[in-house]
Write a protein that binds this DNA or RNA. Structure first.
Ligand SMILES: NC(=O)c1ccc[n+]([C@@H]2O[C@H](COP(=O)([O-])OP(=O)(O)OC[C@H]3O[C@@H](n4cnc5c(N)ncnc54)[C@H](O)[C@@H]3O)[C@@H](O)[C@H]2O)c1
Ligand SMILES: NC(=O)c1ccc[n+]([C@@H]2O[C@H](COP(=O)([O-])OP(=O)(O)OC[C@H]3O[C@@H](n4cnc5c(N)ncnc54)[C@H](O)[C@@H]3O)[C@@H](O)[C@H]2O)c1
Lengths: 220, 220
DNA sequence: CGCAAACCGTTACGTCAGTCACAGCAAGTA
DNA sequence: TACTTGCTGTGACTGACGTAACGGTTTGCG
């Protein structure tokens, strides 16, 4: 019973994934120990925040040596990852979808895109970026067979809600949505919106208003 | 004297761009007036928050008819956009860069990608997605000639800092960063990080933890 | 013309995340 | 062994943001 994770704030989780990335790089370079202020520097945060974030994963550091890199990585893996890994589906093999597919190809061992869906008949039943592409009509069937519970949505905005409904019907519990559209899904389904247009407008706006801002970088 | 914009919160600005998108669609459909609770429904927020956000743009609604759509759109344009529009540069014409280029092509009249930079000699001095592609060596020169102050960074992570330095040297004041790397830039430069990997890990994590979450969707 | 209703603008409140500060402790030193 | 040092873990503080509440105002109708 390793439960009792008492709800981690979203921002904290974002930072944890960042820390892990940094730690993996450090481990590659042979580092054995690291202090909170070192991690903080690399992540662009405050040392206290790093320590507080790490409290969530329940790994105790040593006041004299800091955190043991390898052990911390293992702890974070236990905390962040699903033991057997998670299969991910991609819907929409357009420009963005194909870029994502190429990027995630073999990169994340336990967060792998294993199947693609696209309504375009020219794409269905073919291999795209090493993944089998199916017609959305077969979604429920394929998703269940492959035990997919997370999906990336990269279709045009007008089709987004329809696809989301299909995904939910197919048993998906989390959606990474690239379409600029508000998805109506059941409470139990987690949706993360990633709106690039909004992000660009934000940059355009704040880049005009002097340096009066804080250091909240925010991912996704 | 329309100054006195007294620093808008980032989240508010994100929502404003969303409202504007919705309003444009409504205007297309011929809607003339709209209430805060209608906009709120469409945006997935609370009516009070919509009203509060709209305070920032300084457009007054009417208690009986709500907001006048066309006037509000105009006000938001005045508030959000730079009068003559803003030119944007894209650095890195890889899979992601090309997708972005295709997507923004002619879509945003006053936020246009006008130039591309890539270190690949096969791409330099050619047209990519309707944009001239230059070698990074000519960055400062080209950027100044085209008055570009905003850049999208889509190069591999190891090259990100170097490119950021070049961009800053070329006079850029805002960067939309897709690379999973922390950019060190002067205080006056605004950086918005958009980390897709982080977003996907977030979805994978929270999709496993029941429906205990709030309705903070967050863009970018 | 007076009234009722509905919504806007704004102020006040509550909640949550980020920061600070300090107690506790493990290692190194004399 | 006794002491010093510097970092961790954590409670308390602060500030920002979202939420709720309320007075003001404009319209429609009796
Ligand atoms: N740079 C970008 O590409 C970019 C930038 C910002 C936002 N977006 C958003 O990302 C999404 C995808 O962008 P894109 O450039 O890849 O678009 P795209 O037009 O290149 O690709 C869309 C793909 O989705 C498929 N599709 C359409 N309807 C479908 C359905 N009902 N079921 C399954 N597949 C369907 C199409 O066949 C096509 O292959 C869009 O919502 C867009 O607004 C993309
Ligand atoms: N789906 C995706 O494509 C995806 C997903 C998540 C993150 N990212 C991030 O986005 C960035 C770009 O991804 P991509 O898939 O387009 O990569 P890519 O390898 O397809 O393209 C990178 C491009 O950048 C160019 N480049 C390299 N160094 C450069 C330099 N110093 N100056 C100018 N140009 C240079 C290369 O020539 C290439 O054209 C990466 O940092 C990646 O981590 C991409």
């Amino acid at each position: 019973m390793k439960g009792k994770t008492k709800d981690v704030p979203q921002r904290t989780l974002e930072r944890l994934t960042l820390y892990r990335r940094l730690l993996n790089a450090l481990h590659q370079e042979g580092a054995r120990h690291i202090y909170s202020h070192e991690l903080a520097d690399m992540a662009g945060r405050m040392p206290a925040q790093v320590r507080r974030d790490l409290m969530a994963v329940g790994y105790a550091g040593n006041p004299a040596r800091g955190y043991e890199v390898e052990g911390l990585i293992k702890s974070m893996r236990r905390f962040l990852d699903k033991p057997g890994g998670q299969n991910v589906a991609l819907v929409g093999a357009g420009n963005l979808g194909k870029a994502l597919l190429a990027y995630f190809k073999g990169r994340r061992p336990n967060l792998r895109i294993v199947v693609v869906f696209d309504i375009d008949p020219n794409k269905a039943n073919r291999l795209i970026g090493g993944c089998r592409c199916y017609s959305p009509a077969r979604m429920a069937q394929v998703m269940k067979a492959r035990d997919v519970r997370v999906a990336v949505l990269a279709v045009p905005a007008p089709a987004a809600q329809e696809v989301a409904d299909q995904l939910v019907a197919a048993g998906v519990q989390g959606i990474l949505n690239f379409a600029p559209a508000l998805l109506r899904v059941p409470e139990s389904v987690y949706v993360e919106d990633l709106d690039m247009t909004m992000a660009l407008e934000k940059v355009a706006y704040f880049s005009r208003r002097g340096p009066a801002r804080k250091k909240v970088s925010r991912g996704a």
